[in-house]
Nucleic acid binder design. Structure first.
Length: 572
RNA sequence: GAUUCCGUAGCUCAGCAGGUAGAGCACAUCACUUUUAAUGAUGGGGUCCUGGGUUCGAAUCCCAGCGGAAUCACCA
């Protein structure tokens, strides 16, 4: 156990004292709440009789104690409301313990309490709850960061990103705007879900542990199943499973899925992330573009009541219809080069001319992708569908109805980033098998992200899959846009972090169990001997002298140990 | 992976011509019956990220490491 700070010790002492007074700091029974802070603040008027007897529960977030009366702020799940607590009303009799000791001394900021009382307006005009009784619901043993606010200015904000992400619970308690982002995230997802359900598409669940990680190009996480003695992969996509369900006869299926990719982390990438994929039979990618527009516009309206959304320095308008441009046209527009009829060698020359890095392992598809990514991607701020991708970079996508070198694919670009990816799905099993084999060749050339062949998926297609259009959308990115969050970590409750470094300090028990008295063990640690094992390598006379010296210098008034005592301490 | 910046009290931060470690909030004690960043008084609290080096002396200067942030590169 780490050494406790003064404030933590005081809180543990308060916990003990509460118990001595017969107050259970962690009661088990239900506490019935009849009102919430926001509701009261919204609805209360001096004439109203609605709130003459309310019961609320929440955390104490601030206290202003003024002798026989006190104010404090109670924070429940909706917000904060001020409480007014009067000594003689809490303690009508002679015994004022409940106010003087329990409320004033033994309770702290961060504790959960329940209160009953009536709502009124103070002289300064703040709607408050006049408390007639309170109940301790849970004692907090660690001090929360104290954030104060006046006239919209925040003082002593809790801002350290590492602490905010590692201890998101604290972040949520003291930074109310953080909670809003996550409530909006839920609203985004619910809006989409309602949209799909209205159309009778079916929400499904498919395997996260997959024997073949298919449906996308990415390095997977690998794990091992002991009973079967086989490797399993955490899914990088769920596409192939959802299409199997279309084969099975569902007309529309969708899944909000956690996918996993074993790649770098930055402001827009987290190793696990959420994707919504939807597949609808008898549709094509043109239909899917209309559908996607409608869905995204609806999300913007649900969240903001309008289609314009501030994202960084830009205002992005999600009003339908979005601009549509083919990939080749986009490249021509930005570079002046028409690559539509180029072979691999010509593409490499073009890359060289444009100063774009390329490697021998890159096939035609990757080269085109690279050119697009370097020259075009960043310029699409307003929602834009990039359509008709070259066949080499889309092995699961149906060939274009007018041009066999292209596929019926679109990506939706927003703020220079990919948001959606969609196809007229490839349902020709023979073509699909050929495309998988081409991926194998890429793999042989050294492309470690090329897809594996999924023979069962091909088998499913052989039974027949209706013409289908599918779309995937990055939910985390969508949330970043919709909530104007610059980092993916701001829209994930618990973003992936490097493991927290463990204290490199021995527990104090390691010292005491070697026979060292507690007070000297603490001295040794503050002197820098944080590992007992390291201590035993030092000559006991030196340690003895240093201990006595420290005792004198810091006026600890401890009785100095004898050299033989120290010798014994170090001999364990 | 590269560059830059950062790491001091529970929180936010100051201190860096090297010379006994500071403020505000929080905490503790006292006063105060409608305050609101409540107020007034008093007080406690720190391996100054870790390890090495320079020095009589390092929070401060140098080196290395750890952790974090930003930008870039790589990666869907």
């Amino acid at each position: 156990m780490q050494q406790l700070s003064e404030q933590e010790l005081i809180r543990r002492d308060s916990l003990q004292k509460l118990r001595e007074l017969g107050i259970e700091p962690y009661p088990a029974q239900e506490f019935k709440v009849t009102a919430y802070s926001q509701e009261i603040l919204d609805k209360f008027t001096p004439e109203s009789t609605e709130f003459i007897n309310v019961t609320l529960a929440g955390r104490i977030m601030s206290r202003r104690i003024m002798g026989k009366a006190s104010f404090c702020e109670l924070q429940d799940s909706y917000g904060r409301i001020q409480l007014y607590i009067n000594r003689d009303e809490i303690c009508p009799g002679e015994d004022k313990t409940l106010y003087n000791d329990v409320f004033k001394r033994l309770l702290d900021i961060g504790d959960f309490i329940g209160v009953t009382g009536y709502v009124f307006i103070t002289q300064v005009g703040e709607i408050s709850v006049h408390v007639s009784s309170f109940t301790v619901l849970s004692k907090s043993l660690r001090p929360l960061p104290i954030v104060k606010e006046k006239d919209g200015v925040i003082y002593d904000a809790f801002t350290d990103p590492e602490q905010r992400y590692r201890q998101r619970y604290v972040d949520l308690v003291v930074n109310p705007e953080v909670k809003q982002v996550f409530l909006q995230r839920t609203k985004i997802i619910n809006t989409m879900r309602n949209f799909f359900n209205e159309k009778n598409y079916v929400e499904v669940e498919t395997p996260i542990l997959q024997p073949i990680p298919g449906g996308a190009s990415a390095r997977p996480f690998i794990t091992h199943h002991n009973a079967l003695n086989i490797p399993l992969y955490l899914r990088i996509a769920n596409e192939l499973y959802l299409k199997r369900l279309i084969v099975g006869g569902f007309e529309g299926v969708y899944e909000f899925a956690k996918d996993f990719r074993n790649e770098g982390m930055d402001r827009t990438h987290n190793p696990e992330f959420t994707v919504m994929e939807i597949y609808v039979a008898y549709k094509d990618y043109n239909w899917m573009m209309d559908f996607t527009e409608e869905m995204i516009e609806r999300v913007a309206l649900a969240l903001h009541g309008k289609t314009q959304v501030q994202v960084g320095d830009n205002i992005i308008d999600f009003k339908r219809p979005f601009k549509r441009i083919t990939m080749y046209d986009a490249i021509k527009e930005h570079t002046g080069v028409d690559i539509s009829n180029m072979n691999e060698a010509e593409l490499r020359t073009t890359c060289d001319k444009l100063g774009i890095h390329h490697e021998p392992s890159m096939g035609k598809g990757k080269l085109i992708d690279e050119i697009f990514g370097e020259t075009c991607e960043a310029s699409y701020i307003q929602p834009t569908f990039i359509i008709d991708y070259p066949v080499e970079m889309s092995p699961l996508c149906k060939k274009h109805r007018n041009n066999p070198n292209l596929t019926e694919r679109f990506e939706l670009m927003v703020n220079g980033k990919e948001l959606c990816n969609a196809y007229s799905e490839l349902n020709d099993p023979i073509d699909q098998y050929e495309r998988f084999k081409e991926q194998l060749e890429l793999s042989a050339k050294g492309d470690d992200e090329a897809m594996f062949i999924d023979h069962d998926f091909v088998r499913a297609l052989e039974y027949g899959m209706p013409p289908t259009s599918g779309m995937g959308i990055g939910i985390d990115r969508l949330c970043m846009f919709m909530t104007n969050s610059p980092s993916i970590q701001d829209v994930l409750f618990f973003p992936q972090m490097k493991p927290e470094i463990k204290s490199h300090k021995d527990d104090i028990e390691v010292y005491t169990s070697a026979g060292i008295p507690q007070e000297w063990a603490e001295v040794l640690q503050t002197m820098g001997y944080v590992k007992y094992a390291a201590l035993t390598e030092i000559k006991y006379t030196k340690v003895h002298q240093e201990l006595c010296g420290y005792n004198k210098k810091h006026k600890l008034d401890l009785v100095n140990p004898k050299p033989e005592d120290v010798k014994l301490w170090l001999q364990q």
